[in-house]
């Protein structure tokens, strides 16, 4: 973005921040004013945002793979058009977010390299396979549903470019969730086999969807800083609870069960009580040992390397055109 030129003097890690600047920065955030790219910000704020926004972008891009898997096998033209549009949206979301991260002084190429070398993480959910057509519906309903819960508060994030990207993204997410839920509703009206496919997909994706909110509050690092800086507005567990409360009644309408024997409504608190996710599985997937981690990265790297000649050719053509124009100008003088 146009703002990068002033962003070159990033402070090194651990460097002491000017206490006066730090106080002014926090006061601005407390007044709910946005921080814009060229404004002064503590190095740790910048670093946290680069990490969070780039990993968010990577998640959108890798997230295209499990659903893209079904585009050629969609059961009707209507479903195929919807799925294509959704996957294209996710690509767009990745691009909005990469742009937002770039305003903080990291290049697109650097971020892509961090993803491809495994240095940067992406959401654990995309390391699960999409085994049957109902998975496409369950992903839309549960995965995009969880993403929406996460993303709505981010629209008020203190960093302007991130907040603006999130507003744009949130406007598009509602279609993603609704097309998924409608797909499942349609299958539930079909044969017994189709109903079983829906139940099977939900059984496999329910827990991974809950894990999308990240580790439990008692185990999660960085939350305090992010809350103080108003990057985060709710804790992981608060968001997870909101998601469970919103989703359980939708499961009832759909006519399926959720694979949690501890799940029950608690009259006193007005919330659903749910069981403990398998955190070992979560950390495994984050560390790169989930079911599809290797496949996902392999596919991403292949798409990128296969496209290298196109990027090179486009740049060579642009250079040639520029030279031709300049030669023409000189000749005319």
């Amino acid at each position: 973005m146009y703002t990068q030129s002033l962003n070159t003097a990033v402070q090194r890690d651990g460097a002491e921040e000017d206490p006066q600047k730090l106080a002014a920065f926090q006061a601005k955030i407390d007044r709910e004013e946005k921080i814009e790219p060229n404004d002064w910000m503590p190095a740790a704020y910048r670093k946290t945002l680069i990490r969070q926004i780039s990993q968010h972008a990577h998640s959108e891009i890798v997230g295209m793979l499990p659903e893209g898997n079904w585009i050629t096998r969609a059961p009707s033209l209507k479903r195929k058009a919807a799925l294509l549009a959704k996957v294209q949206d996710e690509g767009g979301h990745g691009l909005y977010l990469y742009s937002a991260a770039e305003t903080l002084g990291i290049s697109r190429e650097e971020m892509v390299e961090q993803l491809h070398t495994g240095k940067a993480k992406y959401s654990s959910i995309f390391n699960y396979p999409t085994l049957n057509w109902a998975d496409v519906g369950a992903v839309g309903w549960l995965v995009d549903g969880a993403a929406i819960m996460n993303q709505i508060p981010l629209c008020r994030c203190s960093y302007g470019p991130y907040a603006r990207a999130m507003i744009r993204i949130c406007k598009e997410e509602s279609f993603h969730q609704r097309q998924g839920y409608e797909l499942l509703l349609t299958m539930m009206k079909g044969s017994e086999d189709q109903r079983q496919m829906v139940q099977d997909a939900v059984n496999r994706l329910w827990w991974p969807a809950l894990m999308m909110f990240g580790p439990s509050d008692k185990d999660s690092v960085n939350t305090a800083d992010s809350m103080r800086w108003k990057i985060k507005r709710f804790t992981n567990d608060e968001l997870r609870q909101k998601f469970v409360d919103a989703t359980v009644p939708q499961a009832e309408v759909l006519g399926i069960t959720l694979p949690d024997p501890d799940l029950r409504f608690d009259e006193e608190s007005g919330h659903y009580v749910y069981g403990e996710p398998n955190w070992e599985e979560f950390y495994n997937s984050i560390k790169g040992n989930g079911i599809c981690n290797k496949q996902r990265l392999k596919d991403r790297v292949k798409a990128h390397t296969d496209g290298a000649w196109v990027r090179e050719a486009a740049l060579a053509y642009a250079r040639k055109e520029r030279e031709r124009r300049e030669a023409g100008k000189q000749a005319a003088e």
Binding site: Y2, G92, A314, E321
Partner: peptide, 23 residues
């Protein structure tokens, strides 16, 4: 609306159309 990477102006216009005006 945002920003985009592209090799030249023509490709930038096309990419901007795809990324920022899908609806």
């Amino acid at each position: 609306a945002g920003s985009i990477h592209a090799a030249d102006a023509e490709m930038a216009l096309q990419a901007a159309r795809d990324v920022y005006t899908r609806r």
